[in-house]
């Protein structure tokens, strides 16, 4: 005797469910992947070389000391040094091109947070947190690489190591979300 199959055991439904699962899973996987690869930059800026030459982070990103955004160096700051440095590499040719056309370099920000997260560099820098703590070993990078899993748990993980009184303040929703 043949047992009647219930509706969810039919092949069509199962294949459709598999497709839906694959689409959702694929979307999630590619979304995670795309957020973890470094974006294409107009100039492949070698952080490694500049740090090795002794440039401090705050020389090019000084606003970290007084504001929410660390900022990107202006063309004149790049050119201030590089008009004296010989322009042999193709990347420096690009920089010279921007200077000639007098247009700003369209850098693509790498370490970005969503709109509902309000991060301020200043308190972190003033508390003596090294840039590498959050941005990774920039001294070994060429273009800046996004750091994986920079999420809320990661923020709180560090805030939790502060004094208990400070943790009350630093775990408050309004510290970062408003």
């Amino acid at each position: 005797m043949r047992v009647k199959k219930s509706w969810w055991q039919s092949g069509g439904i199962r294949i459709a469910a598999a497709f839906v699962f694959l689409i959702l899973f694929g979307g999630a996987a590619s979304g995670i992947y795309l957020s973890q690869i470094p974006p294409e930059q107009p100039i492949a800026f070698p952080h490694k070389t500049h740090v090795a030459l002794g440039a401090q982070c705050a020389y090019c990103h000084p606003a970290a000391d007084w504001g929410p955004n660390a900022g990107l160096p202006s063309l004149s700051k790049c050119w201030g040094c590089h008009q004296q440095v010989q322009k042999k590499s193709p990347e420096l040719e690009k920089l010279a091109g921007y200077v000639q056309r007098n247009e700003p370099i369209p850098w693509v920000p790498v370490a970005i947070q969503p709109d509902f997260v309000k991060f301020n560099h200043q308190p972190h820098v003033r508390a003596g947190i090294a840039c590498e703590t959050c941005h990774g070993p920039v001294s070994q990078m060429t273009v800046a690489l996004p750091q994986p899993r920079q999420n809320m748990g990661w923020c709180l993980d560090c805030h939790q190591r502060m004094r208990p009184n400070d943790f009350v303040r630093l775990s408050d929703c309004a510290t970062c979300h408003y």
Partner: peptide
């Protein structure tokens, strides 16, 4: 309730 600011919050996310 925000313990720090002593206000009510609306956490949008």
């Amino acid at each position: 309730h925000s313990e720090e600011e002593q206000i009510n919050l609306a956490v949008y996310n």
